[in-house]
């Protein structure tokens, strides 16, 4: 039996396809990101080692501060929006006396299964300055608050972040619903016998027991803010000016528009390091949470 399960030929055959694919496209890529971030390289010709020059240039670029600020704003908005709404709705929907619970669950989850490009294009047309739904709606309500939502220097990043929050709220909602389902009903019965109000019950029973789920929710939304790209690429193109630049967008433009690969990879390295910092920080803050570490559960997806 031992020989059976340690057959070396079988082991190699079993692990080779996955390891090759993973090494060629993922591992070698992340190594290249850090390695070539120390080179001046246009992506085709010879790479010239320049030490920390790319990082210095990045640090001095005005867009870098804008991008980090935007990552933070994006993260704050989507975290606040998704966690607050998802918590309220998950608790409401978990109450068996609420009618049409299945309908609400589906209604909130549907945007999650849509393509991000459809969502962005849809919201671009809703927020459109001339023909958009939102401005039409404001006009119909007799308000003169109509705006060029995506063209405002200081507000555009929030508009873009809102679209992300809108699409993914249902995801955190589904996570929390599943988390609440796993809490023993005996705890609620006990709380009821003790005469606790439902607000108190949820505050002292539901929320503390969802620590693990909240850890994961925070992880996706905070790193989601730092990684923000698609919404910006599709809806604003980084504009107006550089007002909606993010780290990923700096990287994308450096590599695919101005062919400064080394510089782009320096931005990518900073992106990875910031994500790792967030993971470590959250891991520390939630260090007494139950069950398995983040490694096991699809962080950063």
């Amino acid at each position: 039996m031992k020989r059976y399960l340690s057959n070396p030929v079988a082991i190699v055959l079993f692990i080779a396809p996955a390891l090759t694919l993973f090494a060629v496209f993922v591992l070698s890529s992340i190594v290249q990101v850090f390695y070539f971030s120390f080179f001046d390289w246009n992506g085709v010709g010879n790479a010239v080692f320049t030490g920390l020059d790319n990082y210095a240039a990045l640090w001095n670029a005005s867009a870098f501060a804008v991008a980090n600020g935007n990552g933070l704003k994006f993260a704050l908005l989507i975290t606040a929006y998704q966690m607050a709404l998802a918590s309220v709705f998950a608790i409401a929907v978990s109450n068996p006396r609420v009618p049409l619970r299945r309908f609400f669950r589906s209604a909130y989850f549907i945007p999650v299964v849509l393509s991000v490009t459809v969502v962005c294009q849809l919201w671009a047309s809703i927020l459109d300055a001339d023909n958009g739904l939102l401005n039409h709606l404001l006009a119909a309500l007799g308000s003169d608050a109509r705006q060029n939502w995506l063209g405002k220097r200081y507000a555009a990043i929030y508009a873009v972040a809102f679209v992300n929050a809108w699409q993914w709220m249902g995801y955190q909602f589904a996570l929390l619903v599943a988390g609440i389902k796993s809490i023993s009903t005996e705890l609620y019965e006990a709380a009821e016998i003790d005469g606790a109000t439902s607000v108190k019950t949820h505050w002292y029973v539901t929320l503390p027991l969802l620590k693990e789920t909240y850890y994961f929710c925070l992880l996706i939304s905070v790193t989601g803010g730092i990684k923000a790209f698609t919404e910006i690429q599709i809806m604003t193109g980084g504009g107006p000016g550089t007002a909606t630049y993010t780290l990923t967008y700096i990287m994308y433009r450096a590599a695919f528009v101005s062919h400064k690969y080394g510089y782009g990879l320096a931005a990518a390295s900073v992106l990875v390091l910031e994500c790792v910092a967030v993971i470590l920080l959250l891991g520390f803050l939630f260090r007494d949470r139950e069950r398995k570490p983040a490694l096991e559960r699809g962080a950063l997806r």
Binding site: I30, G43, K227, T248, A268, V272, C275, L295, L300, R301
Partner: peptide
Amino acid sequence: MFIPVQAIMI
């Protein structure tokens, strides 16, 4: 799991 696809696209 820890490698964002954004970071490795280049």
